[in-house]
Write a protein that binds this DNA or RNA. Structure first.
Lengths: 136, 136, 136, 136
DNA sequence: GTGGTCTAGACCACG
DNA sequence: GTGGTCTAGACCACT
């Protein structure tokens, strides 16, 4: 009997991101949007591997990255839990990462020939799900 | 052949993108922004490789990708030229790529704790440099 | 022919730290002490695995952690290089990590029955090799 | 059995150490600091498990480790008592463990960019709480 | 050649 | 049962 909520995650083979990255992004989004509350237990490594029909090592790697980034707490013998959020990066580093992400995104959408307004709408919609409206 | 404009490109070793990707993105951006006009000749593979001090194979690969995507026309014995713009991808494919890019971008930005408005501003600024205001 | 310096690293099976952690600690120390200069190339994943007679995956994991922490830059097809140092963590996070490390260390040496002065000497000797004397 | 002093111990879920390790460290510290005198009786396995709301198996394991290391004496039918201090490890083993602990600590602290003096002060303060000033 | 990802299966420590 | 580590071997992308 498990109180663990099954994760609403889907692995897309056409996605250029590697599998473990899709899991990391997906879980981060679920946490940031509040669908996974602080302290909530995640599916076990083996359980999520079965659910997604991938190798347990791949799930373990994704979970391990999330723990390193401070999103999850891993407790051997118990499982993984959503961690209390805290600011881990310096302001400089945050700025650099924002720059990198914006530049990469621009590179990705150039050539798709969408008008800027359409792209911005999509981004705004996605961000509305998980980002604060005001600075924390 | 002095008609060939030297490309205003710069390879950044710290950039997470592979070199050929930086070239492809850079050329696409120069074309999209109009700095490289339709019909303009590009530097030769060897010339650009010398200019950027990288392997000619890498330049050849970038040019080949740009030709495959329809940005460049190769004329045997003459060189590569900026092609006449045309629709290069199916609507489905374009939609899927936009989705992927937006999701990846959101994954990168979540947790940096920037307000959505700040992120959107930065994206808008970057897109203004290279995207059309209206659909082509 | 390789300009890569062989790493002065040794894996100790009796050490409670897992192998990949011993590599990470060792490389961090070599970089912090200046024995590995900024921009220097590291042994290839496969090469170090042969040198230490461990599985390439284990080396790859250690290198990947070092890259994530910002100590190394990985360039596919070229190799790994010592990155330019920068402050990535917030002051709060740095304080928390110092606290954690000190507490863990105290727990490790309690019961070894060494006088405090001896322990402090050993720590001072180790830190002298790699830490700044004044705040940067 | 009211002669058993309740232990001033606290289990911290955020602590990276496993629970049994927190108990072992805590009891060792109470003994080293003299708060638990030689011959004093410890709470029963079940009692401590209730007090800390953890699994009795975990308490039993911690007690067993402490007994193996010579900190506690088990008297059948009576319970566990603080043992008479004696040398518990070979000099070689003690030396190796000190080395390991110092190396691990250095690995944790490198890169936090604290001056060595600050780190040493923190260590000295922590050790003052539980280590002898002179060799026992 | 380089690094990166994934699978498969074994073993250990923890609760 | 849980997470964590290691080995072995395959495949991919990059230069």
């Amino acid at each position: 009997m498990s109180r663990r909520t099954p994760l609403m995650l889907q692995i897309v083979t056409g996605d250029p991101r590697p599998i473990h990255r899709q899991i990391v992004d997906g879980v981060r989004r679920l946490i940031a949007s509040g669908e996974l509350a602080v302290g909530a237990a995640l599916p076990s490594v083996r359980g999520l591997a079965l659910q997604l029909t991938i190798n347990p090592n791949t799930v373990a790697r994704a979970y391990s990255e999330l723990a390193t980034e401070g999103w999850l707490d891993a407790r051997a013998g118990l499982g993984l839990f959503v961690a209390i959020p805290r600011q881990r990066l310096s302001d400089d580093e945050r700025g650099r990462r924002l720059d990198d992400a914006v530049q990469r995104f621009a590179g990705d959408v150039i050539g798709l020939d969408y008008p800027a307004a359409v792209v911005l709408d999509r981004v705004a919609g996605e961000l509305a799900l998980c980002l604060p409206k005001k600075s924390a």
